[in-house]
């Protein structure tokens, strides 16, 4: 019954991947920007969380709140002073600026924390919520999934029902008209990045609680995030959850059939196949831009 366990873990792991991808999807959908620094920003959040957890003797809730404040500041500054300046200069400059940010961030982490593997200590990892003879559900995996659903629903509510959400969607639809209606679009972009950073901070905490990480782990999560966004389609929050689940299942099935060495490879191959067959995403009906 190992396969049921793998399938179940894959689905629950999908929650983590959805969380990792959600911030990127937001930025992608609204600014049409592929943020190559996204993975590294998540790992920066993980490191800040780790430091804060030590400061507050293991109180992770307090740690993540402080991390959110820090990350919102970082995101706002990066967006206002770097990315906003190049957004309207064609497709390559924004891509390369975020690439530069990514390299700089991961090397600052390397300088400050060293290349050792780190881990945010928590008790959830060892607890099983459900334990039957066929399968068990680990508390941390269940937490991933629940957090993902809560965050996705909250985001959905904000986007649909608040003035802030409406102005974000207006900017995404038509920049010129939004500006004519009195929306400061550059400011909206900065706020969107802040919102993405809030989500990424929570994702960073989850990443640190689930797995060990290094300063260079950002690349891996960037690729997951990108893959999930591509599978799910842009600006589609439910699609993101589905994308995460597909990636999670693909990885764990790869590990189940071919051995753990092939876990990452299986995930990447599924991404490439979907990217080739349906570049516009599985759920999305819109044409490719």
């Amino acid at each position: 019954m190992q396969i049921i366990q793998s399938l179940l873990n894959g689905i629950l792991l999908g929650g983590l991947y959805a969380m990792v991808a959600l911030g990127m999807s937001l930025v992608f959908g609204i600014m049409k920007l592929t943020n190559i620094a996204h993975g590294d920003l998540i790992i920066v959040a993980t490191y800040i969380c780790m430091v804060m957890a030590v400061q507050f003797s293991g109180n992770l809730l307090l740690a993540v709140l402080i991390t959110i404040c820090f990350m919102m500041l970082i995101g706002f500054l990066l967006q206002t002073f770097l990315i906003n300046k190049v957004l309207d200069k064609g497709p390559e400059p924004p891509l390369l600026v975020t690439f530069g940010i990514s390299i700089t961030l991961s090397n600052i982490l390397l300088l400050v924390f060293g290349a050792d593997a780190r881990y945010i200590p928590n008790t959830l990892k060892t607890i099983n919520i459900v334990n039957t003879e066929h399968f068990s559900i680990s508390a941390i995996y269940l937490l991933n999934f629940i957090v993902a659903i809560v965050v996705i629903c909250t985001l959905h509510y904000i986007m649909k029902n608040t003035f802030f959400g409406r102005s974000i969607r207006a900017t995404a639809d038509d920049v010129t008209t939004a500006e004519l209606m009195g929306v400061n679009t550059k400011r909206i972009y900065s706020y969107t990045m802040c919102l993405a950073m809030v989500i990424s901070s929570i994702a960073g905490l989850l990443v640190g609680m689930n797995y060990t990480y290094y300063p260079s782990t950002g690349t891996e999560y960037l690729i997951y995030a990108f893959g999930v966004v591509v599978i799910g389609g842009m600006g589609n929050q439910m699609g993101i959850l589905l994308g995460g689940i597909i990636l999670g299942i693909a990885q764990l099935m790869g590990a189940y059939f071919f051995g753990t060495g092939y876990q990452l490879l299986a995930g990447y191959l599924v991404l490439l196949i979907i990217l080739t067959i349906r570049p516009q995403g599985i759920l999305s009906k819109a044409t490719r831009r």
Binding site: I223, L264, L275, P279
Partner: peptide, 22 residues
Amino acid sequence: FKMRGDYFTIGTWIVAECLAVF
């Protein structure tokens, strides 16, 4: 080559990561 723009950029990166793992 079916991917365009940013998709091409990240697609090539994923291929490289695949090879590293393989």
